[in-house]
Structure formats: structure tokens, C-alpha cells
Design a binder for these strands. Structure first.
Lengths: 203, 203
DNA sequence: GGTAAAGTAGAACGATCGTTCTACCAGGGG
DNA sequence: CCCCTGGTAGAACGATCGTTCTACTTTACC
């Protein structure tokens, strides 16, 4: 009876499916309710897999948390990059993060802000997931620096302000002002780029 | 032997002391490690009070969490207001939040960002503490609207952008870029106020 | 002086936590 | 054909969780 629904796939495909279902279930629960508030039994039940599979794939809850944060990081990078690629103008490419935010997680999941900031708040500094989230922020900063260089911005270290605005936008969404957050964020980002004389932008 | 160190105070003073010590211990632990990660035993031990006292004063962990968030909200309001009062120029009063951030919690506690955003991420929507944090954000927005009206700003609803910048600044601190966060926040806030033609500011 | 209030220490409750274990089943390759 | 791999179900582990309880001490007030 067990695993009957999986019959027909190859063993490797089933294995990938188990890991993927665990990550998906972990993301839905950890993000919505907080990491420490969710027990492994709840994740396992939502994923529809056996408890032992969790420990086979991730070694424990800590590994699952790290896997959840890695998956979310990678998914956001892909999503963001796709929106960057929709523009050719270098300044619009630097601002593409806001259109990415508009099409991110279309509402079926309650917006609780930045999952990686939340992880850094909840996890001890030496938790494997904390390293993932720190690296996520480092990546964001670095990517914006690249985009500013490509835009010929004389002060690419102004990427810090874009990161500030980005996280402020997510914070505003988490606080319940999600409807206005993105437009305000985009407005502030344009002001910031203008003030650093990256180039004139239309708004 | 028990309570000997308290001898000499009045009963009311001791009672206030017990509550205050609980709130202080709760804040230090909940903020540093996350709410769900901290057990009531740890709070009670750090406060140096009996377990029963916690339930006498707060009814349970949920009440203690709400009390912690209320205390932090009130402390921040006082701190902020004191910095507002240091200026007479209306625009500087609207920007006083950044000097307030510079003197907030002088480093002995690791900066983990906005406690109220963290609470909204970790607590269920119907938790008594979640209501406190929602009201906290509502207060911030309202207070900035007042300050913008007093500054003669033609668009006081631009207070939303100040809230965005404020929370972005805290997010940057939580991500480990605390040294640059406040100056970037202040810079963005000046740009925002200028763009809404509140008045020319020097910077 | 006696009583009620508010504190203390510490044991105990059932529930849930993360983790491990036993047992069984399916598929693929030697 | 057999066995190894990777999945399943579910019980069990000790630890910790939030909460309640008993018993005792101190203080304030009548």
C-alpha cells in the first residue's frame, strides 16, 4: 500500500520527489509559522513521506532548515534573474527587483517578509541555515553592485541602499502594507540612483 | 532564605520588581533567540523569580510575549520622542528617528532587526502579541504622518516611505551591515522628503 | 496577633519535541 | 534469483515543553 502512488517512476525520480516534497513542505510551514514553531512531524505529514526519509536526506531538522533556505535562495535568484533579463536598459535592470517582487508568490501564501532575515533572527549564529541566509544577503549586494557597474554608476557601493530599500519593501509587506510597498520601493530606488548620478530615469 | 534579597522594599515595589525582571529577561531572550526557541524556564531562571510568578503576572507564555512586545514598543516610543524633542526644525524632527537608532541598545545586545516584524513572522495572527506588533507599526506610521503635517508637507501619506526606510535600516542591521545602515537610511529619507516637496533639506 | 496577599522552591503533569529503531515492501542489477 | 538500495509505517526513546500544584516564607493591614 505504501508508496503505491509512486509506482511507475524510476527509483531516482522517486528519490528526487521525496526530497523535493520535503523541501516544499518545509518551506510552506517554516515560512508561515516560524522555524522553531514547526515540528518535524508536521513537515513529514505535509510532505507525505516517512520520518526516516527526512533523516536520510537531511540528517536532521537543522539540515532540513538549511535545505529550505537554500531552495528559497535559489528560487529567488532564478526569479529575479528572469526579470532582469526582461530589460536591456541597465538602469531598468537594476530596478527589475521590484517587478520581480510583484510576481513573487502570488498571494496564496501570506506574506511574512524576508525569509532569510527571519531565519537570522530565529537561528543561532552557528546554525547551518544561518550561513545560508548570510550568503543570500551577500549575493544580493554583490549582484546589485554588478548591475550598477554595468549601468556605469560611479558609486556602485550605493548597492547597499538598494538592499536597504528591498528589505524595507519586504518589511512593509510583512507589516500589512503590501499593496503600497512595491511602488514606494521603486520610487525610492529611482531617487537613490539619481542621487548617485547613475543616470536620469523616467518616473 | 527565599526572597531575602528583597527584604526592605515595600510589597508593591517588590511586586513591580518581579514583573519588571520578567519582562527584561523575556526581552533579552526572546529578541536574541526567537520567541518559540526560548522556554519559560529559561526566562524564569534569568529573571531570578519563581515559575508561579510568571503565571500570576501574565497568565502564561502568550501573555508574557505580549508583555515583552508592549514593553519594547513603549520603550522605543519614549526613546524616539526624546530624539524628536531635541530638534525644533520640523523636518529634522521627522528625521530624528535615525539619531534615535544610533543610540538605541548600544551594542551589548546583538542587533537582530525589528522585534515587532520578527514577532509577526513567528506568531500566529490571533496571538495577543501579534496585535501589539501590528499596533506598533500603525503607531509609527501615524506619528510620521503627524510630523509631516507639522512640517507642512503637502503629501503626509509619504510617511509610508519613511516607515519603509526605517524597517529597511533595521533589516540591514540584522543582516550584518549595521555600520552603514543608519547613514544610508537618513540619506534616503532626505531624498524622499525632498521628492515630496516637504522642504529643502541640507545634506 | 491573625489573616490575606504575594513571593519562594521544587516536584509533577501530560503533551510534544527531535531522533532512532524495528519491521516490511518495491525495484533494479549482478 | 537474490540482494541491495531506498522507500514505507509506526512504535519507542529521552528530553524538553507549558502548565499546575503543594508547601513554605515574608510583608502589609486590620
Amino acid at each position: 500500500m505504501a508508496g503505491a502512488q509512486q509506482t511507475g517512476r524510476t527509483a531516482q525520480a522517486r528519490r528526487e520527489s521525496v526530497r523535493q516534497r520535503l523541501v516544499t513542505a518545509a518551506e510552506e510551514l517554516f515560512y508561515a509559522q516560524g522555524i522553531a514553531s514547526v515540528g518535524v512531524d508536521a513537515v513529514v505529514a505535509r510532505a507525505g513521506v516517512a520520518t526516516a526519509s527526512l533523516y536520510k536526506h537531511f540528517g536532521g531538522k537543522d539540515g532540513l532548515v538549511a535545505g529550505y533556505l537554500e531552495a528559497r535562495d535559489e528560487r529567488w535568484r532564478r526569479h529575479w534573474e528572469a526579470h532582469i533579463d526582461q530589460h536591456s536598459d541597465p538602469l531598468e535592470r537594476a530596478l527589475a527587483v521590484f517587478s520581480a517582487l510583484e510576481t513573487w508568490e502570488p498571494g496564496h501564501m501570506p506574506n511574512k517578509g524576508c525569509a532569510h532575515l527571519a531565519a537570522l533572527q530565529q537561528l543561532p549564529a552557528d546554525h547551518p541555515g544561518a550561513a545560508v541566509s548570510r550568503q543570500h544577503n551577500h549575493y544580493l549586494l554583490d549582484r546589485w553592485r554588478q548591475l550598477l557597474v554595468e549601468a556605469g554608476c560611479p558609486q556602485p557601493e550605493a548597492a547597499t541602499e538598494l538592499l536597504l530599500i528591498y528589505e524595507g519593501t519586504l518589511g512593509l509587506q510583512a507589516a500589512g502594507y503590501g499593496s503600497e510597498a512595491v511602488s514606494h520601493g521603486r520610487h525610492l530606488a529611482r531617487l537613490s540612483l539619481e542621487s548617485h548620478r547613475c543616470r536620469e530615469t523616467s518616473d
